[in-house]
């Protein structure tokens, strides 16, 4: 019973934190965009515009809800729901921190550390495409359909390269559990130093999977009006946009935990602080890393222009995948060499 309560509390906290961070990501996106363009950004709602996400949310709810006459009504509603659901589901396997010791019992700050954590994330991400595809198709609009088709082909292409870049990492660490991978990166033994190519491949694929610039072709305004969510309005549109920010947050968390040591930070043992304090500090540092990557996502968005569609496919299939295969080969050779197989 206690187990269930602890997990329930963790789930609720992770859910609320994801939503909160996603909400403030919208604010951060606008502020960062403004700063990079020498503007001020939203500053009217509350001090420094801090209540802007609230105002946006109220606006989204108040807008008129339109379902096109010729749309497939059930699927039209299902699309954003799937999108939101899959976005929120990924957070459960991410280790948000080390363990907390309360009354002698050790509680991990992670909802569940299943031994196929990475595969779980891939599964959920691959389902996420359906949200876009179903929404785009059900709108009965050619722009939406084009957006949906672009999204699905882009997601499939980059999922391959992403999976392959992860395989190299799994070969190094020898485990599919994210909790275990983070534990192995104690101190400064971050995976990014041993897998730099894998990291670059992974982060590029993460951009593509999140439909962020320079890979935001599914909602490419200049060509497709609004892409897959052209026909959406009110909170359904809000769900699509919101899910994008949750995905960005989760991707940042995954990058931070797979390649940047998660809650680990250097000189952790020299501090001589009690275990629980160290855990909280680790969680804070983990969030610091996550925020840096969220900032990086936005920074890239306001720097790079969008790819052309053939360039996107070219990069995905003829650059990323061969590089990922090469990385796997290289990693395999190094792992075997370290194990003394060549002597």
């Amino acid at each position: 019973m206690e187990f269930i309560i602890v997990k329930f509390v963790l789930v609720v906290v992770v859910f609320l934190v994801s939503l909160g961070i996603a909400a403030y990501s919208t604010y951060a996106e606008r502020k960062i965009a403004a700063f990079l363009q020498d503007r001020v950004g939203p500053d009217r709602a509350g001090p420094f515009g801090i209540l802007q996400p609230l105002a946006d949310g109220v606006k989204m709810f108040m807008k008129e809800e339109i379902i096109p006459t010729h749309a497939d009504k059930g699927l039209f509603i299902l699309g954003p729901s799937i999108m939101m659901m899959t976005a929120c589901m990924t957070g459960v396997v991410i280790p948000w921190g080390n363990t907390l010791i309360i009354n002698g019992t050790e509680y991990p700050v992670q909802i569940t550390d299943i031994n196929i954590g990475i595969l779980y994330i891939f599964g959920v991400v691959s389902i996420g495409v359906y949200g876009i595809m179903i929404g785009g198709w059900a709108s009965n609009n050619k722009y939406s359909l084009m957006g949906a088709i672009r999204a699905s082909s882009q997601m499939i292409s980059y999922e391959l390269a992403m999976g392959m870049s992860i395989i190299a990492l799994v070969m190094m660490t020898g485990t599919l559990s994210i909790g275990e991978i983070v534990k192995q990166q104690e101190g400064m033994h971050w995976n990014v130093f041993v897998q730099p190519l894998g990291f670059i491949l992974f982060i590029v694929c993460a951009f593509a999977e999140c439909n962020r610039t320079p890979f935001d072709l599914p909602e490419c305004e200049t060509e497709l009006v609004g892409g897959y969510h052209t026909e959406y309005s009110s909170m359904k549109l809000g769900f699509y946009l919101f899910a994008e920010y949750i995905n960005m947050f989760i991707s940042s968390a995954i990058i931070a935990s797979l390649y940047f040591g998660g809650y680990n930070f250097p000189f952790i043992a020299q501090l001589g602080l009690p275990h629980n304090i160290l855990t909280l500090l680790g969680t804070l540092i983990f969030f610091g890393k996550v925020f840096f990557f969220i900032f990086f996502f936005m920074w890239v968005r306001w720097t790079l222009p969008r790819f052309r569609y053939d360039q996107l496919m070219h990069v995905g299939w003829r650059v990323m995948i061969p590089l990922a295969l090469f990385n796997i080969l290289l990693t395999a050779v190094i792992v075997l060499w370290q194990n003394g197989q060549f002597n």
Binding site: S126, V129, M133, E159
Partner: peptide, 13 residues
Amino acid sequence: AGAIMVLFLFTLM
């Protein structure tokens, strides 16, 4: 569910 059916759906669309 993640790859093959996406292709199915893709062609059907």
